[in-house]
Design a protein around this nucleic acid. Structure first.
Length: 937
RNA sequence: GCUCGAGUGGCGGAAUUGGUAGACGCGCUGGAUUCAAAAUCCAGUUCUUUCGGGAGUGUGGGUUCGAUUCCCACCUCGAGUACCA
């Protein structure tokens, strides 16, 4: 009987869908387990064979957990807001919602063909108003919250206003904007309502602020750093300038320390955690205030080396620093202004790329050293970044290489404050071996003591204190796009007001064009129905705006990461119309137990999602403050491109191993035409593209052999392999097994369809094991000892492999098991029934079919996983490998109950031992019981 | 530059607490079956060899009876990050 995978797979996919086999219940006596994939952006290109890798792994895990008796939540959805649909809309006028719907359909078909055990009843789409209602809702919660650094928690904004009324803000320890003014309770009460609102914005967890952005006038939009290449836009090559814009931001910096500490509590890959740590960028040091000579102003700097304060011989401000204009003297004005203008023209990336060139300008002003009272010149230089610390540094040229280079370049004094160190060539930055000298009260101290002492002294004179600084910046949350979540915000006298949560969702309006308006406003500026009637709580036409009851709505939309920052929680109760999720659901599922996805989201999605989770935790909305206990990064699947060699200037193509005799150009051709021996059929090539139809070919051994190159899977390299095609030709079970068989989950590895025949013939052999000629053939005969041994070593191995996420080695052990059972001519139910369950997480369709044929009427998906029994693996003999000086030379079979002496005696008595020794006396014989014998001599 | 990861046959890879290096699969070689091909099955396949053996996991050292595995130095490749005070 033939293994008809197409029929079998269609049958079971239908069965699972009709019976809702994988629907998870929100209340169950079973222990819960939540397996999550990073949901895809449904692109127009569809899935290639690399996309489902992580999904297959998580599906195997989810199925395994079901066999182990867990109530498994394994949902899937779509991150369906995004740029490509919008770009397509701009080009064609097609509404992004339509494109998105089409793409989702295609994705769903492709996913269904692979046989995933998703609970589709919980599907979410970030672009669905029923979903983004809750994205908007969370935004409102953030707006209505502030961060109390005393309790280290987000709190409702009302607790802040109460404190302002009672004590002003001097005593309030909060995360807030740097330019927040101080006020007393009386002053607060005297402020107008508008003034109060303006101040509260400086405290809210999402707030409006002037942010410097990369503005591309030609595209009418803000670009991310990686959308800019060499100072011009990647798309179209238009100039990009730095521009200040009022944008929504998220006060993620309030959570810096918790985001850092939380990493210790979660089981995520170390490299991923490391990149989050770097991104957060904690440094411990001190903030120091320098008085500016002749001004009332103080310059505040952050330093990690307060111990070197006596080495500070100048200050450097970022060119953008607020003080620059104020303190620059008349003589220096021209030079400074020219320098500031020159730096403003350069993009941040340009500035960062050009590290070698030293540039700066002297402001003519001086700061007073807090201890020595000496006047130190104040410079500006673009090596100081406005966005880090205070945008100012105390320059210690003897201890910091950049300060050193700057000082050398401009002939600034380089005082040496290190005992016994030569600084004539370079700065000395070795903390371990630091011994401070020439520094008044710090003389003779090492790094640690000197830091402590310096901070103490700074505090005494009120000019500094210990401080922790983070590199992490608040996250800009506005996008000048159409296809994203609208902000639930309208403006009264320029001040943002939240739409009441009861009136959400605020749905995206229709627009004529998806481009920015002529006046440079975001695409929503094109909408005609985009005003808020605050009396009737609904969207009305723009012409009704009277600024009394009808107000303009926000024109920006939210970024891609908004919808993905909490979707894992929404899955728990995805259809809930009244709440983001029920308390019952979140208390049961709590958090994701296993999250699988790409490492490219390390510092984007995965950091923002942790931030929102901590916020929701503070608000009591979720019960745990980390959303995913364990995370695994799947590696990228690369393509194996096929290359043909055209002889230069001709239409002749030469086979790979003959190409060195000619001058050739490499051309990539469709990999799907190449067979396992790297041979391509000339006919296929001729039919593939017209340029080959009348080409000539120089063959080797009558074949055309292509060259191969491993590179990213991409249409332009013609190396994309489609999972549908694989399912069509070999079946989903083969695809699933082969994806796993390729190598370790976390590693990048090349795809080559050639190797797939190995797992395909394995499945055919597995099928044969249960069949005899035309019929199903499983007997109730007692299994042989060997078969039991094969089964149980497979159970053991596969269980361990799944626990270790080592799915590739499981596939090998299935192959070994089937090879052995075939050789043993095993057709015993006692073996073949458990075997079907063991294989079912990997190859669920064939397992279901065999399970049914074995006489079962319910899905194999919930059959208990076979339990490993040690007794079947117990041996009485061991084939000892005998090594000489660590090299294995021969094997000898001995009873396992032989003791060390008996083993040694038996080995030494063997003639092969004497052969090896050739008359030498063995110096030492090591016997490791049950493992190995090693003879030294 | 810094951080992290990885180097094993022609290829993907295995060896999970230091104990038989190359499991499993692809490809390749030979054979069976076939008019032939596909499919299937069997045998072989790290290199080298005077057929006794010898060498061998990026390179060089070290620890050990024994190292792909642990330590030190270096080389190569990949990923992330970048004037972070």
């Amino acid at each position: 009987m033939k293994y008809d995978f197409n029929e079998i797979e269609a049958k079971w996919q239908k069965f699972w869908a009709e019976n809702q086999t994988f629907k998870a219940e929100n209340n169950s006596d079973k222990p819960k387990y939540y397996v999550l994939d990073m949901f895809p952006y449904p692109s127009g290109a569809g899935l290639h064979v690399g996309h489902p890798l992580g999904y297959i792994a998580s599906d195997i895990y989810a199925r395994f957990k079901r066999h182990q008796g867990f109530n498994v939540l394994h949902p899937q959805g779509y991150d369906s807001f995004g740029l490509p649909a919008e770009q397509y809309a701009i080009q064609t006028g097609q509404h992004p919602a339509i494109t998105t719907e089409t793409n989702i359909k295609r994705y769903r078909e492709q996913l269904d063909k692979i046989g995933f055990s998703f609970d589709w009843s919980r599907e979410v789409r970030t672009s669905d108003p029923a979903y983004y209602k809750w994205t908007q809702w969370i935004f409102i919660q953030l707006f209505n919250s502030w961060y109390n650094e005393d309790t280290d928690k987000s709190e409702d904004i009302s607790t802040l206003t109460t404190r302002f009324e009672n004590e002003g803000n001097k005593t309030v320890n909060a995360s807030c904007d740097a330019d927040t003014p101080e006020f007393t309770a009386e002053e607060w009460k005297a402020f107008s309502s508008e003034e109060q609102q303006r101040i509260l914005l400086k405290y809210r967890l999402t707030y409006l602020a002037e942010t410097e952005v990369n503005w591309c006038p030609a595209l009418g939009t803000v670009l991310a750093n990686d959308e800019i290449v060499n100072g011009v836009s990647e798309r179209g090559g238009h100039p990009v300038i730095r521009k200040k814009m009022t944008q929504w931001s998220m006060r993620i910096t309030a959570f810096s320390e918790r985001l850092l500490q939380g990493l210790e509590t979660i089981d995520w890959p170390e490299p991923l955690k490391e990149s989050q740590r770097n991104w957060i960028g904690k440094s411990v040091g001190a903030s120091v205030k320098f008085k500016i000579d002749g001004h009332d102003e103080w310059i505040e700097v952050f330093t990690t080396r307060p111990d070197t304060i006596f080495g500070a011989s100048f200050m450097t401000l970022a060119p953008e620093h607020d003080f620059v204009a104020k303190i620059t003297t008349a003589e220096q004005k021209e030079e400074v202004e020219a320098y500031v203008e020159a730096t403003a023209k350069r993009s941040e990336r340009e500035r960062m790329a050009d590290v070698k060139t030293i540039s700066g300008a002297f402001t003519g002003a001086y700061a007073i050293h807090p201890f020595s009272g000496k006047k130190v010149p104040i410079w500006i230089g673009d090596y100081v970044l406005a966005s880090y610390g205070t945008g100012a540094v105390m320059a210690v040229p003897c201890g910091d290489q950049r300060d050193y280079d700057f000082a050398k370049h401009y002939n600034i004094e380089i005082p040496n404050i290190f005992d016994g160190v030569d600084i004539s060539e370079e700065a000395f930055a070795d903390k371990e071996n630091t011994r401070i000298g020439n520094s008044d009260f710090l003389n003779g101290l090492g790094y640690k003591e000197a830091v402590k002492k310096a901070i103490e002294e700074l505090e005494k004179i009120g000019q500094g204190k210990g401080k922790v600084n983070y590199r992490l910046r608040d996250a800009v949350f506005s996008r000048q796009r159409y296809w994203g979540e609208p902000f639930p915000v309208y403006y009264v006298n320029g001040l943002p007001q939240m739409i009441d949560a009861a009136h959400l969702p605020l749905e995206l309006p229709e627009v004529e064009k998806y481009l920015p308006t002529e006046t440079g406003e975001p695409p929503l500026g094109n909408a005609e129905l985009w005003a808020w009637d605050s009396e009737n709580n609904r969207v009305v036409a723009n012409e009704k705006i009277d600024h009394k009851t009808v107000f303009p709505l926000e024109l920006n939309t939210m970024p891609g990461w908004a919808g993905s920052s909490y979707y894992f929680n929404r899955y728990m109760d995805a259809a809930n119309k009244d709440e983001i999720f029920s308390e019952e659901a979140i208390d049961y599922w709590k958090q994701v137990d296993l999250y699988i996805g790409g490492s490219e989201h390390a510092t984007g999605h995965l950091l923002y999602a942790r931030f929102w989770q901590k916020f929701l935790f503070d608000k009591g909305i979720v019960p745990v403050d980390e959303f995913a206990k364990k995370l695994i990064n799947q590696g990228m699947i690369l393509g194996t491109s096929a290359i043909v060699y055209r002889i230069s200037g001709t239409n002749k193509y030469v086979s790979k191993n003959l190409k060195d005799d000619y001058e050739v150009e490499e051309l990539r051709v469709d990999v799907n035409m190449v067979n396992a021996s790297d041979e391509i059929k000339i006919e296929d090539l001729k039919n593939w593209q017209p340029q080959f139809s009348d080409a000539e070919f120089i063959l080797e051994d009558g074949k055309y052999i292509v060259g191969r190159e491993i590179e990213k899977m991409s249409k332009r390299w013609f190396n994309v392999v489609n999972p549908d095609d694989i399912c069509e030709d070999y079946g989903a079970d083969t695809l699933r097994l082969y994806e796993m068989f390729l190598g370790p989950l976390e590693q990048a590895k090349p795809w080559n369809t050639a190797g797939i025949t190995g797992v395909f013939s394995f499945l055919k052999k597995l099928w044969k094991l249960y069949h005899n000629g035309d019929g199903f053939n499983v007997s109730d005969a007692e299994p042989s000892k060997d078969s039991l041994k094969t089964l149980h070593k497979t159970i053991k191995k596969v269980t361990e492999d799944i626990d270790n996420f080592s799915f590739n080695t499981s596939v090998s052990s299935f192959m070994i098991a089937v090879n052995e059972l075939t050789a043993q001519k095993c057709n015993s139910r006692a073996i073949l029934e458990p075997l079907a369950i063991v294989i079912s997480p990997y190859a669920p369709h064939i397992a279901e079919e065999l399970w049914q044929k074995l006489g079962h009427t319910t899905s194999v998906a919930y059959a208990p996983f076979p339990v490993f029994e040690k007794k079947h693996l117990v041996e009485s003999n061991k084939e000892y490998p005998v090594s000489f000086n660590g090299k294995m030379r021969f094997k000898i079979e001995l009873p396992l109950d032989f003791g060390k002496e008996e083993v040694e005696k038996a080995v030494l008595a063997d003639e092969r031992t004497q052969n090896q020794l050739q008359g030498r006396e063995p110096k030492k014989v090591i016997v490791v019981h049950g493992r190995i014998v090693n003879i030294v001599g």
